[in-house]
Design a protein around this nucleic acid. Sequence first.
RNA 1: CGGGGUGUGGCGCAGUCUGGUAGCGCACCUGCUUUGGGAGCAGGGGGUCGGAGGUUCGAAUCCUCUCGCCCCGACCA
Length: 569
Amino acid sequence: MRWSQYFINTLREVPADADVISQKLMMRAAMIRKVAAGIYTYLPLGLRSMQKLEAIVREEMGRAGAIELTMPTIQPSELWIESKRWQVYGKELLRVKDRHGREFCYAPTAEEVITDTVRDAINSYRSLPVNLYQIQTKFRDEVRPRFGLMRGREFVMKDAYSFHANRESLDEIYEKMRVAYGAIFNRCGLDHVAVDADTGNIGGSASHEFMVLAQSGEDAVVSCPNCSYGANVEKATSKFFGEPAAAQIEELAPIHTPGTQSIDDVGKFLGKPTSQLVKTLVFDTDKGCVMVLVRGDREGNEIKIKNYLSAEFLEMMPDARFESATGGPIGYCGPVGTKAPRVLADVSLKGLTNWVVGANKSDTHYTGANPGRDFQEPEYGDFTTVFAGDPCPRCATPLEIHRGIEVGHVFKLGTKYSAAMNCTFLDEKGAREPMIMGCYGLGIGRTVAAAVEQSHDDDGIIWPMPIAPFEVVVTQIGKEDNVRAAADDIYRQLRDAGIDAILDDRDERPGVKFKDADLIGFPLRIGIGAKSLAISQIEWSFRKDRAKQLGAAEEVVESVISEVRAARI
RNA sequence: CGGGGUGUGGCGCAGUCUGGUAGCGCACCUGCUUUGGGAGCAGGGGGUCGGAGGUUCGAAUCCUCUCGCCCCGACCA
């Protein structure tokens, strides 16, 4: 490709509304252009990177036995009503009506359509399993789109769906997909981890997230530096040893604690560390009001609580209903004499005696509260979020917490959709069973953006070779005829060798060309100017360190070709 | 959804308080000089000042409504 005939409009200044590095750099490098909040044009350079990633994804999907198809982005409401998600999904689902007033949605994912497709086509266990995927544009009407391609509303995602006659078959394909995902991210040169994850909205049993580690990541990932344990903080657990019981069991005693609504205030007032106090959280759920007790220095984890209760809906109890639901004022609520019908306690409290808790009376706490004696023994469980330094649940090594960008997510769905949508098959005995499903998502744009987050410097992007828009830029320095001819010749040689090269033949000063090349981040650059040509030499360098090497043209071409081939994997 | 901010040429901004008919840098075009890390000089083109309505002799500026975009918050008992 000749730069002068291509479509690259780099920006010297950062657009004011860019908020993360990948977005700033990709906008400046003319890879993406914002059209509306969370909606982008993929400019030619950006599209090339996406297409390169897509090619890798297709290869690995093929290797895992998945078969490509394409489903519509606009889907009829009937299918979504059938799966109940039309009602459940909420405002993230963009709903539209056609001219006849029929309702459709712009698909955020495609379980309904694929299930509908497979139930029509497959009736026998003999035809199972199947694993189908597409690479398709999706739309989720996010409350607050931000971070460029990392959290857009319209985005490109690879989504695969597998259908099985039994659990073992699901386990087998699930494992193949996990391996494929690891291979994809490895090939892109991304530093990533696979972690246990919550299944969230999609539903199902097992689930793993693939996280690219980066400072700007939206998710926190817990990992063990010793064993292979890794999990999303939403889900991570730690090995809690519990507290030794106090030697002396105290009597329940009210104390006057004015103006101490927060745990920190209570701790300061009583001169005790918050780890020796009990924090009371109250939730409103579809299963009723639930009180959750956690150690004062821990944080309640709504997802764990929600999962434990099998609740569909859970939120902090609104202030307006707080007193009537618990019988105590906000800030002074506790388990002793509460009206809350159900009381849970985090495992961190197990064995702890002589609790300090709210007394359900203004400006009053109790000391010496003991479960079983002063109030009903609560249901114990893991209801708090893991902190860095907590012991690993497998090997007790202190856990680490890193920021990560979720680029892939695989689920064992089970029969949630197949049962709801009557996607069944006949087994060996002629019995009709719902198919068992798995689903596997991978964000294309997000992965490309994650690569930029992970690999850049002050001057621009440093692309990993496999997803660089071009592998090599040939920079023509100066416009003398011999320079032009030499640059052209080198470019042709590379192209003939199947290298993805771009020739910077613009009538620009050298500095401009160097700056643009660094900004866009081509992994390799060959520079051809009058100076070095005079001694029959040309130069080449890697973007990552920019150390220039000189050599005869044939040698340089040879070196560059072999470097590119080696880096392609 | 709540709070805050902002909207002026392709990009970044000033001008708004104190109304007088739009300006700077980058980019773009022409010429000359330059030419190994975003050149210099000279000249030039491009903007219904987000939109609608109002006040006024006169509105980017004041008032009302509206739309877009950005930020912060929505684990606190």
